[in-house]
Design a protein around this nucleic acid. Structure first.
Lengths: 225, 225
DNA sequence: AAAGTTAATTATGAATTCATTATTCAGTCA
DNA sequence: TGACTGAATAATGAATTCATAATTAACTTT
């Protein structure tokens, strides 16, 4: 019998924060759209109070924007925001890489190796969905390996905001190949527990992601004109 | 006549977030204490709804901890939390230092120089209050100079959580002198716009703060036994 | 008297209600 | 026809109410 399940019942607004954030990150609620309180309440079967509490939290996390007497709108994904977010995220990843080399245990490295293999397989079969999933798992496992809750929570927030961008721009074949190379290097550096090397590589990896994203966005803009 | 004042009236819960956060940061509400909803509502003259909304936000920021059906408690300041927070804060300061060297304008550097002079004066007259204020202004001005909103908001959050610790431990004369030296170096590197140097120095400065804090906490622990 | 049990009280989470502010839309006038 | 006005409608922010869970107090029972 599992006792923790019945005890650890999350409160209503916490669940709503999770679900609404997912709606934003997964691009179900589109940037700029206003969040329809009443509609969401009906479809989720809750009253406005916990939903509004959740919206305040989401606003403080930057996923929605509140306007007095005008409710909440989904925060838009601007190029400027990305250009501000990625450097911060990159620095946090650098720190995570350094700390992970010191603190991660062997079992976790093996787990990452397996997910790394999954990722390579997904790359070879050009399965974007599986690739993204494996990629995300690897990064998360590395962050967890850093053994720093504060780092983890701030990383999670920024990663969520960045994840929205991937729905806007598909990565190029060229960038995809480069990303694979970078991951190969990261894997080796982690196994060698080269803190400085892994940190720098992870930072660079993230900044290269930004370059690719900006390029993709520019290409998209052109195609729209 | 100033028209912007009357328009930009912040919403009730936003004001409450600010005020409650200050109560926590300024150590009016002590770590571990439970937050008395009813009492606060009475003394602030608001109903529970906006207050509770504010508490959810504060919880997501890490200043209070919510327990289902047991309300909110002020988050405790543990040594472990500090040891997790400082490295993250230090990395953010490093990034801020690098970006500030690129983006800050001359007028802002001059402003920082003036506050730096104020800080030296406060040090010489051993005015802790004035010293802390000038110190905080300098760091904030540097962050602003980085021209990165995301960086700024995350820094603000972590800085707030760290600030609580200074109420728990007074810094030693030795550390104080060291901090002054570090600030002198930072000032020179900023004026020279040495991005790498300023970043590294600011990071080190922050990590030294942690060491001093941990030492002070240990000394305090001993004196209590 | 101390530990355990039950009833009264209080606090909490969430729904509902209410006042106010935006928004929509029909009607007016240039 | 098209911009303006104002009433009708809808939404939002905040207070209030209500059901339930936690805490306290009173009361056994040994």
């Amino acid at each position: 019998m599992n006792l923790t399940d019945s005890i650890n019942r999350p409160t209503l607004h916490e669940e709503l924060v999770e679900r609404l954030r997912n709606l934003v990150v997964e691009d179900v609620l589109k940037p700029g759209e206003k969040v329809p309180e009443k509609q969401l309440c009906d479809s989720l079967g809750v009253s406005r109070t916990p939903l509004r509490e959740a919206l305040k939290v989401l606003a403080s996390e930057g996923f929605v924007v509140l306007q007095a007497n005008r409710g909440a709108r989904v925060a838009s994904v601007t190029r400027e925001e990305m250009e501000n977010t990625f450097p911060v995220l990159a620095t946090l990843e650098q720190l995570a890489g350094e700390l992970a080399c010191q603190n991660i245990d062997f079992a976790e490295i093996e787990l990452i190796e397996r997910r790394h293999a999954d990722m390579l397989k997904a790359y070879k079969s050009r399965d974007r969905q599986a690739y993204f999933k494996a990629n995300q798992d690897i990064h998360q496992a590395l962050i967890r390996g850093a053994r720093n809750d504060i780092l983890q929570s701030h990383h999670k927030l920024l990663a969520g905001r960045v994840r929205r961008a991937r729905f806007m721009a598909n990565l190029s074949d060229e960038r995809w190949a480069q990303a694979i190379d970078e991951h190969e290097a990261m894997m080796e550096l982690l196994k060698a527990r080269d803190a400085d090397g892994l940190g720098k590589t992870m930072k660079l990896h993230m900044m290269n992601k930004l370059s690719a994203l900006v390029k993709a966005l520019e290409a998209e803009d052109e195609s729209l004109c």
